[in-house]
Design a protein around this nucleic acid. Sequence first.
RNA 1: CGGGGCGUAGCGCAGCUUGGUAGCGCGCGUCGUUCGGGACGACGAGGUCGGAGGUUCAAAUCCUCUCGCCCCGACCA
Length: 592
Amino acid sequence: MRIGSLFFSTLREDPADAEMPSHRLLLRAGYIRPLGAGIYSLLPLGMRVNMHVTQVVREEMNAIGAQEMLMPVVHPADLWRETGRYDQIGPEMGRFKDRGGRDMVLAMTHEEVVADLLRKLVSSWRQLPQQVYHFQTKWRDEPRSRGGLIRVREFTMKDAYSADRDEAGLDHSYNLYYHAYTRIFARLGLKTIAVASDVGMMGGSQAHEFMAFSEFGEDTLVICDSCKSASNRQVAQVRKATPASEAPLPLEEVATPNAPTIEALAAQLHIGQEQTAKVVFFVDREERLIVAIVRGDDDVEETKLTNAIGARDLRPAREEEIRAGNMVPGYASPIGASRALVVVDDLAAASANLVAGANREGYHLKNVNIPRDFTPDHIVDIASVKSGDRCLTCGDPLRLEKGIEVGNIFKLGTRYTAALGAEFLDEGGVKRPIIMGSYGIGIGRAVACIAEAHHDEKGLAWPVAVAPFDAHVALLGASKDPRVEASATALEAAAVAAGLELLVDDRNESPGVKFADAELLGAPWTVTISPRSIDAGGAEMTRRTDGERSVVPLAEVTERIVAAKRAEREQIEADLSARGFPPVYSAPSTTG
RNA sequence: CGGGGCGUAGCGCAGCUUGGUAGCGCGCGUCGUUCGGGACGACGAGGUCGGAGGUUCAAAUCCUCUCGCCCCGACCA
């Protein structure tokens, strides 16, 4: 490919509204262009990376026996009504009517369609297990898209689905995907960790998220280096401290002017924050006021709270809603409150003589004891893990990291098959619901995460497995010396024979522009052909990652690139085998 | 949905406070010179100032409404 015919344009200056490096560089280098909020076109460069990522995913899916297919992006709403999700899911689902007035939805995911196919196609245990996958557009009307390709509204997802006879089969399928995903992200050059996670809107019994480490990550990962275990902070549990046992003292009201925050309160009373109770208010979808109480040194983890009480769509309460429950914001406690669901963190409940609000402006209560002074509806872990907390299993200190979710695996169970009547007859002639799992990877997000992980101040630096071109060929002095164009033509022919793709920059631009663009676009190699390089013996090869440079005979350029590609792939395979993830799935392993 | 910011040429911005000819840099076109680290000169193309309404002799500028985008909090691949 000659660069002059490539459909793209680079930007010399940074786009004003791009914050994340991947967003900024993918825009600047001409890989993507926005069409609207969270809606992007992939330009040919971006599509090339996308296709390479897709191919790696496809190879690993096929390797575990999954079959590629394609399901529609527009679904009849009735199918989603059958599983209840049409009403459960809020405005993030795209809805419209077709010309006949029928309700239709834009696919956010494909559990319904798979379960529908299962009930139509599968009737016997002999037809199980099955695994299918596709690469398909999803529309999710995110309340807030951001970060370029990191978080968008329309995106391509590889979603795979397993269908098994029983839980043991599901466990096996789940392990297959755990294995395949580990291999996929390693091959894509992403450092990821699988963390135990919340099941969210998918439902089901168990889930892992594959997280790429990134300082721009939206999720916080809780990692125990001793146990080699990791969880999303949303569900992570810790070994809680045992509060000193004190005899409960009588309640006592104290004046605490201008102390609506825990910090101010603790400072004013000269006590530690752990001696206070923090009260946080939420309202669920049924407009129920929820009072969540943790110790002053903790924060409420909303996902834990949501799961603990089976709530949906929690949002922070407004001040008037708090007052309607007879509580005073800033000085609140459930003592004397009405009409609220009270959830207390187990640590707070075990702590004696806490300071809590008096529901009177400027006053707090000392020596609050739970449940002596009020009766919680739930006592359960709802505290957010913080740095310094200790591992539930081994007691060692936990480490917190930021990550971006690039893939997830869910044990769905019979959530969808039971609702849709996707059943099979077992050997005994007994009708049973099919057991499902679902497994997603956001392709565009993976591309963005790779860009996040592989760039420098000059531009992108793609791993060879996904680079849009194997090499960027910069021609210098071609107008003066016909040997340059002749060499380029010869190199292009050699590349075709070797199965390599080159981007040849034959523009009439200054060398600085060509080098800068080569570094911005991020091909693994820059091959410079000039009268000088020809006199020196051929072409100059520069490795993008470390700038290592050498002059090699023109005839050896392609074999050098091929050898480097092979070496990188072999290194990745060696690393994967050492970690227990060889090309062929061998044994169950979901530890970690 | 709450908070903050921004919409002026393809990109980055100035002009707005104090209303009166729409500007700068980069990029783009033609010609010439240059040619191993974002070259130089000459000439040139390109804008309903996001949109609608209002105030005014006159609106990019003031007022109202509206649309869009970005960033920070509640969701997810």
